[in-house]
Amino acid sequence: MTTATEVSTKLAAPVPRGGIAQSVRDSLVVARRNLIRMMRIPEVVVFGLVQPIMFVVLFSYVFGGAIGVPGSSGPADSEVYREFLMAGIFAQTVTFATAGAGAGIADDMHKGLIDRFRSLPMSRGAVLTGRTLADLAQSALTLVVLALVALLIGWRAHNGVVDMLAGFGLLLLLGYAFSWIGALIGLTVRTPEAATSGGLIWLFPLTFVSIAFVPSSSMPTVLQHIAEWNPFSATVQATRELFGNLPAGYPVPDAWPMQHPVLASAIWSVLIIMFFRTLAVRKYRSATA
């Protein structure tokens, strides 16, 4: 058998520091790589902005007049709806980043980069964490631009800077949580194309069967329950409260997440991260292209 000294001379790479420090460093190295990519493919970021802006315009000016927000009344209705709508658009925008994470990781698998990473003495979760962190940065940038557009059409956060930042914080946390679902999808499907469509399809029912665009009171009972317990709704409701975007007489549904939306939103996001991160990292460890 080989002795210990022989072994140590055969190790070419430096001794990893191991643990969390290495994990963080490796994740940042990968995040940096993904950010460089994003800067070199600005189209992706730009298209990521076009869709939410289009939704703002469509919902505000096309559907807005037809959708009533309970608690409001009179001719100011469509302005009330615009404020009501924005939290939904913000939340939908960050969740759509999911598809990006999935497609990116599927592409890395397809091109053999995941094999390369897996053959390196790096932290096991770093490739996925790095990717999701880069997507978080992109979501933050998108939110800033979208908020500026929202300001132009009359949206305001009425409860001060702290609540406003808390609202955006919850939105980003939700986006981060969803990007782990995207990572898992990306590792599971075989091609980037499948990851893009597979990453988007389930987002439509998730974001529409919610309180994001219409109040749950307008839905059939079954959908109403689903919408009120939907993690996505919790974040939307929390954001609306923090931004002060609910009309004074708005009847908040009785469901627990709707009554405690900030807490519910945080719990949902943390649970999603814990669950899907575990699954995704496990999948990564045995990933085969």
Partner: peptide, 28 residues
């Protein structure tokens, strides 16, 4: 060191950035 069946480099990174990244992930 593994050189796989097809060139596993990030095409949007420069040659230098690719090698630096791999070096750092080897814990340099």
């Amino acid at each position: 060191g593994l050189s796989g069946q097809f060139a596993a480099v990030d095409e949007y990174l420069t040659g230098r950035e690719n090698l630096q990244m791999v070096g750092q992930l080897y814990q340099m």
